[in-house]
Amino acid sequence: MKVNPAYNTKESLLELYNKPLLELVFEAATVHRQFHNPREVQMSSLLSIKTGGCPEDCGYCPQAARYHTDVEAHKLMTVESVIEQAKNAQANGSSRLCMGAAWREVRDNKDFDNVIEMVAAVNDLGMEVCATLGMMNENQAHRLKNAGLFAYNHNLDSSKEFYGDVISTREYEDRLNTIGNAKKAGLTVCSGGIIGMGEAIEDRVGLLMSYMEMDTPPESIPINALVAVEGTPLEDQKPIEQWEMIRMVATTRVAFPEAVVRLSAGRTKMTMEGQALCFMAGAGSIFAGDKLLTTPNPEFNEDKEMFAILGLMPKEAFADGEQPVSKPDPIIEARKEKEAQRAKELAEAKIASAGFAPRKVTVS
C-alpha cells in the first residue's frame, strides 16, 4: 500500500486537514476516483461473538467489566449461531463479516479453537472474514490466516501522545506489535481510530502519522465517531459535528490513496447528506445492521434506501484480493479425532452394557 508523498509529514497533514472543507472534499474525491470505483461501497457487518467482561479500561468502551453500563456479558457464540448470522448479513447485502470478541488477548484454548472453526465456516460462504480479538502473537495470527481469515482489525484509536488519556491497561506499542504479527502472517490489516474523545486536531493527524511511519500502512482504515455510552468515563463527551467526520475521512483518503476508508461508528448521528459527502470524499465501506458490537447503527433497509437515492452499489467480496484458501487446522483435526474416538468408545460400552456382543463372521 502506498502513501501520498505530498503529505508524509505532520505539518503537511495538518495543512491538508485544515483546508477549506469543500476544497478538501474536492481533492479527496479526485484521489478517490483515481484509485477506486466511486459508486461502489462495501457493506460490512460487525458481529459481537463474545460480549462484555473485558478486563481493560478503554474509556470509550461499554464492554469493560469495570464500568456500569447496560451491556450484558455473554459467553462465546456457537459456531452454528455465527453461521446463521453470517448468512443473514450476506442475504442483506453484506460481503464482509467482522467478528469481535471482548478479550484483552487471544488465548490458546477451546474458545480460540471455536473461533478458528467460525472463520473457516464464514470463509466457505464466500464472505470476507475479519476478526478483532485483542492482542495476538504470530502463531495465533498464522492459525487465523490458515483458517481463511482475510483481515485482522486492531485499532490504534488515536495518536501515541493522546492514547494514554483514554487507556492505561494496554500500551500503544502492544497495539503496534499485534498489527505487526498480523502482517507477518500475511493477513490484511484494518486499523483506524475514534474522533470525539476530547483529542486535539493534532492527535487526529498524529493517528494518521502512525500509519504513515509503517513500512506497510493498513489496507483499510476505519474512521469512528465516539458513541458516548452512559457509565463509561467518556459519557459526557459532546458529540462531534458531522463536518469533522467528513474532514477526517477526506484527509485519510488523500493521505492513503489505495486504502479502503471505512465510515464506521457514529453514522446514526449523521444526515444522509453528511454521509453522501463522506462517500464523495472517499469512504468506501460502511457497517450495516442495527448494531456495531453493542452500539446503535442504521438498519439494513435504511442503508438500502440511501444507496438507491445516491446511486451507490454494494461492493462484492474479494474485489481487491483473492479469497483465502482454508487449510486443515492440526489442533482442530486432533480434537475432532479425539471426539470421534470417544464417541466410538461410548457406543461400544453402551452395546456391551446391554449384553450384546459384536457378531463374528467366518469365511469358509
Score class of each variant (00 low, 15 high):
Val3Leu: 11
Pro5Asn: 00
Pro5Arg: 08
Asn8Thr: 07
Lys10Val: 08
Glu15Ser: 03
Glu15Lys: 13
Leu21Asp: 01
Glu23Met: 00
His32Glu: 07
Met43Ser: 05
Lys50Ala: 12
Gln63Ile: 05
Ala64Pro: 02
Val71Asn: 07
His74Trp: 03
Val82Leu: 15
Val82Glu: 01
Glu84Tyr: 05
Ala86Cys: 09
Ala86Asp: 11
Ala91Glu: 15
Arg96Gly: 02
Met99Gln: 12
Ala101Cys: 05
Ala102Val: 05
Asn109Pro: 02
Asn114Gly: 03
Asn114Val: 01
Asn114Tyr: 03
Val119Gly: 09
Val119Ala: 06
Ala121Lys: 06
Asp124Leu: 06
Asp124Arg: 10
Gly126His: 09
Met127Ser: 07
Val129Thr: 14
Glu138Asp: 07
Glu138Phe: 06
Asn139Met: 10
Leu144Asn: 05
Leu149Cys: 13
Ser159Arg: 09
Tyr163Gly: 04
Gly164Ala: 12
Asp165Leu: 12
Val166Glu: 00
Thr169Phe: 08
Tyr172Pro: 09
Glu173Leu: 13
Ile179Leu: 15
Ile179Val: 14
Cys190His: 00
Cys190Pro: 08
Leu208Thr: 05
Tyr211Gly: 03
Met214Ser: 11
Pro222Tyr: 03
Ala225Asp: 03
Val227Asn: 03
Glu230Gly: 12
Thr232Cys: 04
Pro233Asn: 00
Glu235Tyr: 01
Lys238Arg: 10
Lys238Trp: 01
Glu244Gln: 13
Ala250Trp: 14
Thr251Ile: 14
Arg253His: 13
Pro257Ser: 05
Arg262Ala: 07
Leu263Val: 07
Ala265Asn: 12
Arg267Phe: 02
Thr271Glu: 10
Leu277Arg: 06
Cys278Tyr: 10
Met280Asn: 04
Gly282Asn: 01
Gly284Trp: 02
Ala288Pro: 08
Asp290Trp: 01
Pro296Glu: 09
Lys304Asn: 13
Leu310Pro: 02
Met313Asp: 04
Phe318Val: 07
Pro324Asp: 09
Lys327Gly: 00
Ala334Leu: 12
Glu337Phe: 03
Glu339Gln: 13
Glu348Pro: 04
Ile351Gly: 00
Ala352Asn: 14
Ala352Arg: 13
Gly355Leu: 01
Gly355His: 00
Val363His: 13
